[in-house]
């Protein structure tokens, strides 16, 4: 266990050096979400009206969640890069297991999205976003987002290992992320949707996580009266979903890594 932690830390150091040395990635991962907050918050904010609430308060939980979904493509591409690089052979000839290699990869991607989220919080605050819940509850909301990010990173790792080439990983992760994000309550209140579409969106697991976050942030004034399935007690279900995602995907990814590398 101690060894697993030490190995993961040594390998994480490598990823962090990469991040610092390739500021393009760091910048694009910060600038893009920040631009999203500004554009969506201001643009959509003036088009979508919520009874008794501000759109940017509604938006933030959704846009954080969207950022966490970026872990799918980020980790997928990173893992493929590792696989196609001779470095995998070096790691496999060392007395370490596959697990720390994968932990370091997912952790570094999650860290990147955490940095994005911090930048987004600042911009969000600037355009008027305020949480309306106790600090512990708000922290819980961020914790839930972190769990989502970790789960998505493991999903991405597994996809990357199964698909292997960036040309395939890009479209596939896009097809995973897009419907999850847009057929959900992340950006739009579901009340106005036709009922069949609303049903789909309510069953989208991401909606549960976003609803839970909103509630924990105290940003759910506008939606709490809708009485929809998704907003009734979403927190335990969101916790279960995100933890289950990691619990299922992490072992799958580690196994896929071992198999991919052992050809």
């Amino acid at each position: 266990m101690i060894e697993l932690m030490n190995d993961s830390r040594a390998l994480l150091g490598r990823h962090i050096r990469h991040l610092v040395r390739m500021p393009e990635k760091l910048i694009s991962m910060t600038v893009m979400p920040v631009a999203y907050v500004a554009v969506f918050g201001v643009l959509f904010g003036s088009a979508i009206s919520l009874p008794g609430a501000e759109y940017h308060d509604y938006l933030m939980a959704g846009i954080f969640a969207q950022t966490m979904l970026m872990n799918v493509s980020g980790t997928g591409l990173g893992v493929a890069d590792d696989l196609n690089n001779g470095l995998v052979d070096r790691f496999r000839s060392l007395p370490i297991t596959s697990t720390p290699v994968m932990i370091a990869r997912t952790t570094s991607n999650v860290l990147l999205t955490v940095l994005s989220s911090i930048a987004m919080s600042v911009v969000g605050f600037a355009i008027g976003w305020r949480t309306e819940a106790g600090p512990l509850s708000v922290l819980g909301g961020f914790g839930l987002l972190l769990l989502l990010g970790i789960g998505m990173a493991w999903l991405g790792a597994w996809l990357g290992l199964v698909l292997r080439s960036p040309e395939v990983i890009n479209p596939v992760t896009f097809m995973v992320i897009m419907p999850l994000t847009f057929l959900s309550n992340a950006f739009i209140p579901l009340n106005g949707l036709p009922s069949w579409l609303r049903t789909i969106c309510q069953w989208n697991p991401l909606s549960v996580v976003v609803a839970a976050c909103r509630k924990l942030f105290g940003n759910d004034i506008a939606t709490s009266q809708a009485g929809a399935l998704v907003v009734r007690n979403p927190e335990p279900r969101a916790l279960l979903l995100t933890v289950a995602l990691s619990a299922i995907m992490a072992p799958l990814a580690v196994r896929a890594y071992r198999k991919a590398a052992a050809g």
Binding site: R14, R17, R21, M22, G86, L87, D89, R90
Partner: peptide
């Protein structure tokens, strides 16, 4: 110890 056919070092370190 293994030195593979293609250098297995991290070029960004």
């Amino acid at each position: 110890g293994l030195t593979g056919q293609y250098a297995a070092v991290d070029s960004r370190l």
